[in-house]
């Protein structure tokens, strides 16, 4: 999936601004950003639900369009089902809209319901299913055609913990089977656990694209030490925050290193300068920290 200099404008609102990125086959790609960052608009353009104002999009080697539907699975952020249709008929209907035969769609639908523990509920109408069951049926409508490209828009929002786990499992399952998974989210923990590559969007513009490690490298390294003196005198330390007494004259410090300085460099200097240390711990930045650092706290809180 490739987007090249894609822009989408609604009247006076610039929803997506000159966005370019590529998703390699068989990767899990996270599309991160706050509300209004342009994630849903970008995904809708990929699906040809709306068209870009300018730029070029390529999906599975073709232009966006319904011809791609048989190879795409899509779970939108705002999900619904036909209340009077049975669970199995609903899945089979979407399977047929994606080009499956009636028998294949029914068979695959039954298999999915079985896998999700809903085999006994397959003939129940949607309005009689619990919310959690309905969420599973929604997921099944996206998976029924065994898509090569699975697009999930904020897939974890509104899911109960059990279904969140189920969805994570399905994403891993699809990826292992060779499918490409693109999902948007503003919950960074899911992205950290699942994504091979990430893209950070803010106000429709790309702010970052790369792996999780590359994202973390965007932030200065941090260490936690227990020492008698402030470590700010060590070369390469940008800032040391006193976190209080650690007993027997020792104190805890949160230390932020200068850009380009690795924790190992500081440890080596401490040893060389005989700076007494009782504890030295490298702190890993969370994706949330990276996100806040890159897009700013105001954007991140949206």
């Amino acid at each position: 999936m490739t987007l090249e200099r894609v822009t989408k404008r609604f009247d006076r609102t610039l929803a997506v601004d000159d966005l370019s990125f590529s998703v390699a086959p068989a990767t899990v790609f996270g599309f991160l950003g706050g509300n209004g960052a342009g994630k849903t608009t970008s995904l809708r353009m990929v699906l040809d639900i709306i068209r870009p104002t300018s730029g070029r999009i390529e999906v599975l080697g073709r232009a966006p369009g319904r011809a791609n539907a048989p190879e795409i699975g899509f779970l939108p952020e705002e999900r619904g089902l036909y209340r009077q249709m049975t669970a199995l008929d609903t899945i089979a209907y979407f399977g047929r809209l994606k080009g499956m035969t009636a028998s294949d769609a029914k068979r695959e639908g039954s298999a999915l319901l079985d896998r999700f523990g809903l085999a006994a509920n397959s003939k129940m109408t949607v309005d009689k299913l619990s919310k959690g069951m309905a969420q599973k049926v929604q997921l099944a409508t996206a998976l029924v055609n065994r898509p090569r490209l699975l697009i999930l828009d904020e897939p974890f929002s509104g899911l109960d913990p059990v279904n969140q786990g189920l969805l994570e499992e399905e994403i891993r399952h699809m990826s292992a089977a060779g499918s490409t998974v693109v999902f948007s989210t503003h919950v960074m923990q899911h992205a950290e656990r699942l994504c091979d590559r990430l893209l950070l969007l803010a106000r429709g513009r790309k702010k970052f694209e790369g792996t999780l490690d590359e994202a973390r490298a965007e932030l200065p390294a941090r260490i936690a030490v227990v020492s008698r003196r402030s470590p700010s005198e060590i070369q390469g330390v940008e800032n040391a925050e006193d976190r209080g007494e650690a007993g027997d004259g020792w104190r805890r410090w949160n230390v932020r290193l200068a850009p380009g300085i690795a924790p190992g460099d500081v440890l080596q200097r401490c040893t060389a300068e005989q700076f007494p240390l009782r504890q030295f711990e490298q702190l890993h930045s969370s994706l949330h920290d990276v996100f806040v650092h890159i897009v700013g706290s105001a954007e991140a809180s949206k």
Binding site: R44, I49, F74, Y82, F94, L97
Partner: peptide, 20 residues
């Protein structure tokens, strides 16, 4: 109206065009 209020349209539109 039910399709709109039940947030169904986006899922449908990923498979069929608005004209269809």
């Amino acid at each position: 109206v039910e399709e709109r209020s039940n947030k169904l349209l986006e899922t449908v539109l990923a498979c069929v065009s608005p004209e269809e």
